[in-house]
Nucleic acid binder design. Structure first.
Length: 423
RNA sequence: GGAUAGAUGGCAGAGUGGUCGAAUGCGGUAGUCUCGAAAACUAUUGACUGUAACAAGUCCGGGGGUUCGAAUCCCUCUCUCUCCGCCA
């Protein structure tokens, strides 16, 4: 959530930034400023009335102890007028604060200055490519055929047990999932990330803190009986480790990693996008998260991009890194780099990671702060990225490495998988 | 699920209607001492709104109530402990 002070200091600049994100309701900015001014003046009225009540009450205390009952009774009558005022102000303040909050959460994060203009994915900017797109042999197939051929995953079984988009991994397919999770976690821990295994359901407060609520309510599975949400990413529970926390400056940066299944309703998806493992409702993912000093967050962003890039290189997959344009970015992000790998049989790029700097948008909601050297409270910056999401990595590994003999896994994975490949 | 006790500052822990934003201890920070450190001693040390800075106001798990006045009394919700039941 944006800080009201930012809007007040430079409303025109805020509107300009919001329009880069293709955000239309710019009038909200002025509305919020007006509401905040109103809030302040009502608060002042309330404080004044309350101050009167406090002062007289103190006097009554003294009068009572000295046995001056008549004067005490008189003083009590004086309080009544203040109480009426205070009650009126406090009623107004509740309503104004509610309006202010509701307006404020509708504003997305402001895009960083490096964010390219644009409205659609086509306008994202390729910043780097790596790896080699392989020449597949004649009989190469898309991964959904390979999953079936080697009995790695069973979609129909998932259909029966749960529903569409819930594949059941079997045999070597299940083992490949397990190996990848293990490999990714080890890779992250080696780079200094502290491992968590978080709950896979979160409460409303946690979902709000990272920005899933109220913006993405429809994308999450909701356990209504207990008011819990199935996590769409480990980002939600793990970032919330530091909700309502005041860190010491020397505790930064906080580096965390976690494996979790991710649950996404993916309402409105269809067609070739959802074939095979391209888009599913439950998938495995390993996430990296950092809480850092505001001055360092862009440097850390580059480090995280380099980290994910190194991981993809170790998997020997062809990839490209995109800087997302304003219109294609997430609600809470200030800047996002997407990683895509090339799925050689489908002949298309698939997103496997998204690395973002949220600046203080999440930490402001979470109240995650630290005291700087001057003793001033400062909001930390939060960043996160996938490292990595499994299904599309699996799709690429299968498609790109298929041979007449079988699927040859990259060297880095072989010891985790316990074999050179799938035959 | 049933019964009981409880929830106070970074932590431990006092406080049962007024002078309590809250004793005390630990921890933190600064200083004295020291070549340096430890110990000891001294001072300081919660957050939020607000202000140019003061002032003022709010916060003792959350919400509501009683009262001139609530950490303290009442209602309610949430969570935790212990015991019982069930159970991977």
């Amino acid at each position: 959530m944006l800080q009201v002070s930012v809007l007040k200091n430079n409303p025109e600049w805020v509107k300009e930034r919001l329009s880069v994100k293709n955000f239309k309701q710019l009038e909200l900015v002025d509305k919020i400023i007006a509401l905040d001014n109103e809030r302040k003046s009502i608060q002042l009225g309330f404080d004044t009335a309350q101050s009167g009540i406090n002062a007289i009450s103190k006097e009554i205390g003294l009068l009572m102890t000295t046995g001056n009952v008549a004067e005490a009774a008189e003083a009590k009558a004086q309080v009544a007028a203040f109480k009426v005022q205070a009650a009126e102000f406090s009623e107004k303040i509740v309503s104004v604060e509610k309006q202010l909050h509701e307006a404020l959460v509708q504003l997305p994060n402001l895009p960083a200055k490096e964010v390219p203009l644009g409205k659609t994915p086509e306008e994202n900017v390729v910043v780097r490519e790596g790896g080699q797109i392989p020449n597949l042999y004649e009989k190469a197939q898309e991964h959904w055929f390979l999953l079936d051929k080697y009995k790695l995953a069973n979609f129909e079984l998932g259909n029966k047990i749960t529903g569409a988009g819930f594949p059941v991994y079997t045999g070597q397919g299940a083992k490949l999932q397990r190996s990848l999770v293990q490999y990714f976690l080890d890779f992250n821990v080696k780079a200094g990330y502290f491992e968590y295994l978080p709950p896979f359901m979160v409460n409303e407060q946690s979902a709000f803190a990272t920005g899933q609520l109220p913006d993405k309510e429809g994308q999450m599975y909701h356990v209504t009986e207990d008011k819990l949400y199935l996590i769409p990413t480990a980002e939600v529970p793990v970032t919330n480790v530091y909700r309502d926390t005041i860190l010491k400056e020397d505790e930064l940066p906080v580096k965390m990693t976690a494996y979790s299944p991710c649950f996404r309703r993916e309402a409105g998806s269809y067609g070739k996008d959802v074939r095979g493992l391209n888009r599913v409702h439950q998938f495995e993912k390993v996430e990296i998260i950092q809480l850092v000093h505001p001055e360092k967050s862009y440097q850390v962003l580059d480090e995280m991009v380099a980290h994910v890039e190194a991981l993809l290189n170790s998997l020997e997959l062809p990839y490209r890194i995109l800087r997302l344009c304003g219109g294609d970015m997430g609600f809470t992000s200030a800047i996002t780099y997407d990683f895509e790998v090339y799925s050689a049989a489908q002949k298309r790029w698939l997103e496997v990671s998204s690395v973002s700097n949220f600046e203080n948008y999440q930490t402001n909601r979470m109240k995650c702060r630290f005291k700087d050297s001057n003793g001033k409270m400062v909001l930390a910056h939060s960043l996160n990225g996938s490292s990595l999401a499994l299904p599309r990595i699996v799709a690429c590994l299968l498609e790109n490495n298929q041979t007449a003999e079988g699927i040859i896994l990259p060297k880095s994975l072989q010891s985790y998988f316990g074999a050179e490949g799938i035959f």
